[in-house]
Computed example of a mutant assay.
Amino acid sequence: MEALIPVINKLQDVFNTVGADAIQLPQITVIGTQSSGKSSVIESVVGRSFLPRGTGIVTRTPLVLQLNYCPKDDKQRRSEFGTNGIEEWAQFLHNKNLPGLTKVPVGDQPEDIENQIRELVFHYIRNPNSIILAVTPANTDMATSESIKIAKEVDPDGRRTLAVVTKLDLMDAGTDAIDVLCGKVIPVKLGIIGVVNRSQQDILDKKVSNCPFN
Rank of each mutant, 00 (worst) to 15 (best):
F92Y: 11
T144D: 08
D141Q: 10
I131N: 00
D73Q: 08
E43Q: 13
G56L: 09
D141S: 14
T83E: 10
P71E: 07
V121E: 00
K96S: 11
C70Q: 08
R78E: 07
V154P: 03
P99L: 04
Q109A: 04
I150K: 00
Q116P: 01
E153N: 08
P137Y: 02
P128M: 09
P62Q: 12
G47Y: 07
S49L: 13
R77C: 12
W89T: 15
G82L: 03
G100C: 04
V121G: 03
T55Y: 00
S40D: 14
R126S: 15
G56T: 04
E114T: 03
R126Y: 12
R118G: 02
M142T: 07
R53N: 06
I132V: 10
V104L: 09
L51S: 06
I150E: 07
R60G: 02
N115M: 15
N129T: 07
S130P: 01
R78C: 01
K152R: 14
R78N: 05
R118V: 00
I148H: 01
R53C: 08
V58I: 12
I42D: 03
D108T: 13
D73L: 06
C70T: 08
G47E: 06
E119R: 12
Q91E: 11
G85E: 02
R77L: 06
E146N: 05
V58N: 02
E111K: 13
P105F: 10
Q66Y: 07
R126D: 11
W89K: 14
I148S: 04
D108S: 15
F122W: 09
A138I: 05
S147V: 00
F122K: 05
E87F: 05
R159Q: 15
A138S: 13
N115G: 13
R53A: 05
K96R: 14
E114G: 04
P52E: 12
